[in-house]
Design a protein around this nucleic acid. Structure first.
Length: 683
DNA sequence: TAGAAGCAGATTTTT
DNA sequence: TCTGCTTCTA
């Protein structure tokens, strides 16, 4: 242990050895955050703390895995018990499997993803945009407002509608025994809140709690943490307020800014020695982030040498930009540079196209990270839906998705007929199809559809029986034989790629069943719904990805494209300039040796070619002189009529500053709300 | 029911 | 410009 501690710098060592009471480790980019947290875990175990009483929460499976590996590398994996290292959501899942009966629900629930959530909402018929409804429902849920309370308090038309949808949605979830991502945390919190005995025993179970990427926690996660450490206060959080980039998803930067108020007597340790980037790169990042007001404040200090100048690349348009960057990358590779150490970043995915084309043309192998996610592909979701029906034949949400895939002649009308007949009989559709003799079904839905539906029901039933028999290693082969999804997709356009995906998924299934003997279908489904696929970096090719996707990574040679006002920073509806700046900071601090920031004068986007100003961030980072003018005067004045996406039309009754933006007091039919000027438009 | 045509909308996305 | 969804027609 002495040896391990010796490798740390003074602050890191202090962070590792401070074990009692609340501790905030403010760890800037590239300051050895993971090293510190994993060493701390090892240190606790070395002190004789029972490993099973240490809980480490992360945001991604990837981070959890990396930490586990690194901690075990320090202490070996032959321990008397295992520390729990997992994501917040996984923790919620484990907890709910144990305690959800306290809320009168069955432990056999299924987890749905965001896409499923939207589909469910959509089935309730609404004219409001689905994504808005989905986020608003999340907001209600995370504020612990029940559907009934929401319905009772909604005044505006749109909110009446949203609260109605919220109510229907929650009912749907409990009727079908579904749980969404929010529920994994919220239901956990509700149980802890409602039952002090459970809260106490769980809190005593985990005597030491560590949290990674604390700046990205939302309110519920923070409240959950308070509950978990209520009996001991041994909570250590690691994060960087300057890297908080998920505010738009409900992450609350105030959790980290006011940590010392939520957890009294908190100690703060700052890690400010950056081992990653050259001094020039780091100084640019520091200059940029200093333009933010809402921060705890820290100044990264370079350990490395001064390094090369940051290059600012100005091009005519995106074609020229992409060609020049491809050429530079080509030269690096020719000189023997490892392509895996090169990356191109952008603020919005739509900008990846020109780069993809230019790299393809230059014959440079690359990989687009996180574009369409594996588990969200249609063919994969189809298999998952099948597995869900097999596991739980009453899951009509999944049934609806696949009843006509492969084609069985079941359209809207047929499905409705089946649905109302099942309703009439008081049973589920699957049950109906199984019980009713074929002639009956044929009479209701016609000859062709009837026959194939009967075959479908038999197949599902057979697979259901088989899934209960234990050993599932050959299950997926039987599945394909009976359902023929792979076969079906192979004849469709894009068949090749889809078949490859299906094969990969089947492979994952077999691996899972082989590695975890006796695992059930239900366990497999829960596992994959909490899986993301950020581990896809293959370590051989040039990476191109969004700035968000790059968090936590580092590259020797880094290119950031689209450094223009309106693209980076994004400036439209609902944009938060400080968060944009933090994104800029995250982007810059990914670079180790060489950084190129690129902008264009004209860009083709959404079918229009527009002239652009270079990004204000270039000026703020001290990389060029003429920084663009920031608007001094508000575009609005008292008395203006404005329109808001949700609140509708209102009148401006007051204007105040909020950083570099303006905050408006707007009267919407009697209710006054404070809203940032960028959220409304004048009418 | 299934394919064709017409039309709006379009950030970032750990689980 | 491109995509994904609704509406129209055979």
């Amino acid at each position: 242990m002495e040896q391990i501690l010796y490798e740390l710098n003074e602050e890191q060592r202090r962070a590792v050895q401070t074990i009692d009471g609340p501790l905030l480790i403010l760890a800037g980019a590239g300051t050895g955050k993971t090293k510190t947290i994993t060493t701390r875990l090892a240190y606790l175990i070395d002190l004789g703390v029972d490993p099973a009483s240490i809980l480490t929460l992360t945001f991604t499976n990837k981070a959890a895995k990396e930490m586990r590996d690194r901690a075990f590398a320090l202490i070996g994996d032959h321990l008397p018990s295992q520390p729990l290292l997992c994501t917040f959501h996984k923790f919620g899942l484990l907890f709910l499997r144990r305690y959800i009966h306290k809320l009168g629900r069955d432990r056999n629930f299924v987890i749905i993803d965001t896409d499923d959530k939207k589909r469910i909402i959509k089935s309730f018929k609404t004219d409001l945009p689905l994504s808005v409804v989905a986020t608003e429902i999340s907001r209600y849920k995370n504020s612990l407002i029940s559907p009934e309370e929401a319905v009772a308090s909604a005044k505006l038309e749109n909110f009446k509608e949203i609260s109605r949808l919220y109510l229907e949605y929650q009912n749907y979830l409990s009727e079908n025994n579904l749980v969404d991502f929010d529920d994994l945390l919220i239901l956990t919190y509700r149980i802890l809140e409602g039952d002090p005995d459970i809260a106490l025993s769980v809190s005593r179970e985990y005597n030491f709690i560590m949290v990674d990427e604390y700046q990205d926690t939302n309110d519920i996660q923070n409240r959950l943490l308070m509950k978990l450490c209520s009996s001991h206060d041994n909570i250590c959080v690691v994060g960087d307020d300057d890297q908080s980039i998920y505010g738009w998803r409900g992450a609350n930067i105030n959790n980290i800014l006011y940590f010392h108020e939520h957890f009294s007597n908190a100690k703060i340790i700052r890690l400010e020695k950056n081992y990653r980037s050259t001094r020039k790169i780091l100084e640019a990042a520091n200059r940029l982030i200093e333009h933010n007001r809402n921060r705890l404040g820290k100044h990264l200090e370079a350990v490395r040498e001064e390094g090369a100048d940051i290059e600012v690349l100005a091009s005519r348009d995106e074609q020229e930009e992409a060609a020049r960057i491809a050429e530079k990358i080509g030269r690096l590779i020719d000189r023997g540079e490892d392509p895996a150490k090169i990356a191109v970043l952008f603020r919005i995915n739509a900008l990846s196209r020109s780069i993809e084309e230019a790299l393809t043309k230059a014959r440079i192998p690359f990989q687009l990270v996180g574009a369409i996610r594996f588990y969200e592909r249609a063919e994969i979701k189809d298999i998952i839906s099948y597995l869900r029906i097999i596991s739980n034949p009453r899951d009509e949400f999944s049934l609806k998705r696949v009843i006509n895939r492969p084609k069985r002649g079941v359209g809207k009308v047929t499905y409705e007929r089946l649905h109302s007949l099942a309703l009439h009989e008081g049973i589920g559709i699957m049950e109906l199809l199984l019980k009713l003799p074929e002639e009956e079904i044929v009479r209701v839905v016609g000859r062709k559809s009837g026959r194939s539906l009967k075959g479908f029901a038999y197949a599902i039933d057979l697979l259901h029986q088989k899934s209960l028999q234990g050993d599932l290693e050959n299950f997926i082969d039987e599945f394909e034989r009976l359902i023929g999804l792979r076969e079906y997709y192979s004849h469709l356009p894009d068949g090749m790629e889809r078949v490859l995906n299906i094969d990969e998924f089947y492979g994952l299934f077999r691996d899972h069943m082989r590695e975890q003997r006796g695992s059930t279908l239900e366990e497999f489904l829960a596992e994959i719904s909490l899986q993301s696929d950020q581990d896809q970096l293959d370590g051989k090719r040039v990476s191109i990805m969004s700035v968000h996707a790059s968090k936590g990574l580092e590259f020797k040679h880094l290119f950031v494209i689209g450094m223009e006002e309106g693209f980076f920073p994004l400036t439209g509806d609902g944009c938060d300039i400080e968060e944009e700046r933090r994104l800029g900071y995250v982007a810059i601090t990914r670079a180790m040796d060489r950084l190129t920031l690129s902008y264009v004068r004209k860009r083709f986007y959404r079918g229009r070619r527009s002239s652009l100003e270079k990004s204000r961030f270039l000026g703020e980072a001290g990389l060029c002189k003429g920084s663009i003018k920031i608007e001094r005067k508000s575009l609005f004045k008292k008395g203006d009529l404005v329109k808001h996406k949700l609140f509708g039309i209102g009148r401006v009754i007051g204007i105040s500053r909020a950083g570099k933006e303006f905050k408006l007091s707007i009267n919407f039919g009697g209710t006054v709300r404070e809203i940032l000027a960028s959220f409304v438009e004048r009418i």
